[in-house]
């Protein structure tokens, strides 16, 4: 995989965050806003050990992954589950917003075919596309804000006072933030001064989350409780131009972000799988089939994978990186002590 610049690291993660935000079915309220802010601040703190780990000279995740191939398998598994969840989100949105495709499964298969094609390109194509896609999303958000300006009623915003609810929302937000795991893997491919890209991502993520929530709350008012996907309903209500419903317009951004997210998950899965089983052929195709299958299973059983995702996120973005950092510091100290002993011996001799 090619190296990615800080701007590309930012845009890749920002696009993934934007996708999960616009197809979030969670009812936005003030405690949700406060919870999201706390969760993002916490994620930023947890990203520090990751950056510190990559600052160690010669560190390579490929070579020093905790538990070796098993560790990589865990990450691959996470991306497959997340990919399935992304497909599931597409299913949900396709039912709620008008998609001119007969079934949600067909919708997912078409998207999977496009993602397969996109994943067959170089990683640089993905990172470059992410910059353009995030630009398109920001433009869409600007149109939404423009339309929402006249429809928004600030009286709909009631400040949050229940601390318990804020903490509950913070935990829930954290458990759906797979971007932290993705960040850990992507840091391997990013260039120097990683902290710039990471900081920009968390700042951007915070601004975007709060902006989307405030638009949803002020535009929709109490109707927010009736809708499955508040972002699209807010889009439909805001009507920036003299059109009846604008949500079809937001479908462009949604689809582009969805393709980017799933492609990224596919690429990362296939890179990890290739490291685990180097001789395996068609690993991208296998990964997408697994994602689609799991997604169909989730859809038919109605199972909620959020707790599993939460546990995996904590393990893969908190536990493993921290253990690896401690191990690396210990090894560095040991190597430093050994080399100083060796030099002392050389001096003596």
């Amino acid at each position: 995989m090619n190296k990615i610049s800080n701007a590309q690291l930012f845009s890749v993660l920002f696009s993934v965050k934007a996708f999960s935000l616009i197809c979030s079915g969670v009812t936005a309220d003030a405690s949700q806003m406060a919870g999201a802010a706390i969760s993002i601040a916490l994620q930023f703190l947890l990203a520090i050990p990751m950056i510190m780990l990559y600052r160690h000279s010669g560190f390579s995740l490929k070579k020093e992954m905790l538990f070796g191939k098993f560790g990589k398998l865990l990450y691959a598994l996470f991306f497959i589950i997340w990919g399935a969840v992304s497909f599931n989100r597409l299913w949900g949105v396709s039912k709620s917003v008008y998609f001119p495709v007969d079934s949600s499964l067909a919708c997912s298969v078409i998207l999977a075919a496009v993602c397969l094609y996109c994943a067959s390109m170089k990683f640089s194509a993905l990172s470059r596309s992410s910059l353009i896609i995030s630009g398109i999303f920001i433009f869409t958000a600007a149109i939404l804000i423009l339309g929402a300006y006249s429809k928004a009623d600030l009286a709909n915003y009631i400040p949050a006072t229940d601390f318990g609810s804020i903490i509950h929302n913070a935990v829930r937000n954290f458990c759906s933030s797979g971007e932290l795991v993705m960040l850990f893997i992507l840091l391997e491919f990013s260039s120097a001064d990683r902290h710039r890209g990471v900081t920009a991502f968390f700042v951007g993520s915070l601004i975007l989350t709060e902006l989307v929530y405030i638009i949803e709350i002020t535009v929709l008012g109490k109707i927010i409780n009736l809708t499955d996907f508040p972002f699209f309903t807010a889009g439909a209500f805001s009507q920036p131009f003299s059109i009846q419903r604008a949500d079809s317009l937001y479908m462009i951004s949604f689809t582009l972000l969805c393709v980017l997210t799933v492609t990224l998950q596919l690429v990362l899965t296939s890179v990890l799988v290739k490291e685990i089983v180097p001789d395996l052929k068609y690993n991208t195709l296998l990964s997408v089939i697994l994602m689609l299958g799991l997604s169909a299973l989730l859809n038919s059983t109605g199972a909620d994978l959020s707790p599993v995702m939460g546990v995996l996120i904590i393990m893969l973005s908190v536990v493993i990186p921290v253990i690896m950092l401690i191990r690396r510091i210990y090894n560095d100290k040991k190597t430093g002590a050994d080399s100083s002993n060796a030099s002392a011996l050389r001096v003596q001799s």
Binding site: S96, Y98, T227, F232, F237, Q239, R245
Partner: peptide, 8 residues
Amino acid sequence: IKNNRISP
């Protein structure tokens, strides 16, 4: 309102 094809 829940039906996505009616103008709000």
